[in-house]
Structure formats: C-alpha cells, structure tokens
C-alpha cells in the first residue's frame, strides 16, 4: 500500500494563478521518489500542499485529495501533519539562525513527551552528523551551507517521520557536498525505512538515488516511471541530464529540438 497518495491536485495562488494543474503522485512505504522539473514547474508547491505550508503563501488547494497513511490530511494544520509522521525540509534550509545546532534539534521535539527519548534522538543525530556536534558552540546562522543543510535534515528527523519531504537539498552547495548530502539521504531511507519525496533540479544526482521519479512541467506531470526508465529516456537526457557527451555540430539543427511530450 502506498504511504502517500496525491489525487488530481489543483493549486491556485492569489485566487488567480493556477500553479498546479491536476497532479497525482504516489509514494510507497519506505520508497524514495524524486520530483524533477525546471524552475517554476510547481515542484515546491506540491511539497507545500503535502505539508500544509501553502496557506502562509496565499496558495489554495482547489481540487483533489491528499491521503497519508490511509487518512485524508488536507484539513489538518501543519503541526498536526507533523504529528502524523510527515515532515518538510524547506528550500533554502531555513535553520533557526540564532539557536545552536542542539537547540535547533530540541526545537523540533514539541510532539515528544519522553525526555530520555529526546536526549537519545539528539545523540543519534550527532552521531549521524558528527560535524554538527563539532560546531555545537556556534549559532546555526554561522554554519556553512552544507552544515546547515545537514542540520535542517537532522532537525526534521527529530520528529521521527514516516515520510520526509526534501526541497532542493543540493541548492547552492559544492559538488562534493552534494554527493555527501545525497549519500545521507540514501542512508536515511535504507537504514530507518523512512520514505523520501525529493524535489530536485539536479536530475543526475536525484535519479541516482531515487527508485522512481515524476517529471513536472508547468504544473503537470509529463512523465513518470522507475529511475532507470527515466534515465534512459532520450528527451530527459537531452533536456535534464546534459545530453550525450559528443555533439556533432554539423548535425545540429537550426531549430530547437522539440520535446516529444506536450507541455
């Protein structure tokens, strides 16, 4: 059974702008699913629909259902959804800048009652991300971009989620850090069985870790399938994976290559 099901979701911003036009997505229990697409395709909006963080941005779900663990969750507010087991790591990391890493982790434990368990969770996070323990004296605002991203992920894990929504974890990071972050994501998914829904522009990295993926353009899903199928698709290779290595410039046509789906 799938953990998360989006059925025909439509989102309107400011009552006029239709940003998501009937999107259906499934994330299986313990799965790692990627959501690919260019800027403004509606990827982040879809994550906000799931976590409930659309309201502060004047967005509204006008059609469709979101079911999580067999329940319709659209009417729940974001903190309640976190308590059901889904957590959203926001784009741009958004750590609590004036708090230390440990305080950042503690701030995400409002749903836990057991103090010993909280302590244990903090220790787990520090052993998962030793760098955070080293930088525990500094305020989170002074951590490097990679450290902040790890802190944001660790903070989300403190809520003990069944599903973690990751919005552009590689944004603005050096290539070796991107590898490290994706390695961490794979580990979290494999070791604790936490399902992951990953939004990425870095399609190469995302398709390497994901089991399946959806491709979004202008608010519609234009392609979906297992990561292997998408990776081998010539259109995806051309548009998102940087094309083939050799380009015969004599053969380059003077019109732009059309994608073979309707967008």
């Amino acid at each position: 059974m799938s953990l998360l099901t989006l059925n025909n979701i439509e989102v309107v911003y400011d009552s006029v702008f239709l940003a998501v036009k009937g999107v259906s997505i499934e994330v299986p229990d313990g799965g790692l699913v990627a959501l690919l697409g260019a800027n403004g395709a509606g990827k982040s909006t879809i994550l906000k629909v799931i976590s409930g963080l659309l309201k502060p941005e004047r967005g509204l779900v006008t059609r469709g259902q979101v079911r999580f663990a067999g329940e319709d969750i659209l009417a729940l507010d974001p903190p309640e959804r976190v308590r059901r087991g889904l957590v959203h790591v926001l784009e741009g990391r958004r750590v609590f800048e004036h708090l230390t890493p440990e305080e950042n982790l503690l701030a995400a434990t409002s749903m836990h009652r057991d103090r010993a368990r909280i302590r244990q969770l903090v220790d787990e996070m520090f052993s998962l991300f030793p760098r955070l323990a080293e930088r525990n004296k500094a305020k989170a605002g002074y951590l490097s971009g990679g450290e902040q991203q790890m802190l944001a992920i660790a903070r989300a894990l403190m809520t003990q989620p069944k599903l973690i929504l990751l919005d552009e974890p590689s944004l603005g990071l050096a290539p070796f850090l991107v590898d490290e972050i994706f390695d961490t994501i794979r580990r979290i998914n494999a070791e604790s069985g936490t399902a992951v829904l990953l939004v990425e522009q870095n399609a190469v990295a995302a398709l390497d870790v994901a089991q399946s993926a959806y491709l979004i353009e202008q608010g519609r899903i234009v392609m979906s399938g297992t990561a292997e199928v998408l990776k081998s698709n010539p259109d995806i290779q051309q548009a998102y994976l940087g094309g083939s290595s050799q380009v015969d410039y004599h053969a380059v046509k003077h019109y732009r290559r059309r994608k073979r789906w309707l967008a």
Partner: peptide, 23 residues
C-alpha cells in the same frame, strides 16, 4: 525546551510550523 521552542518561533515561523511547533 519550551523557551527554545519560543525562540525558534521568533527566528522563523514557517520553519517552526514545518517541524511541528504550534506557533
């Protein structure tokens, strides 16, 4: 811990919401 949560709210309300704080 409650005080830390309140300081988190002052830092970033959306992020607080996203980790389950009842802002």
């Amino acid at each position: 811990r409650l005080g830390i949560i309140m300081r988190a709210v002052s830092d970033d309300q959306t992020a607080s919401w996203s980790v389950g704080i009842k802002v």
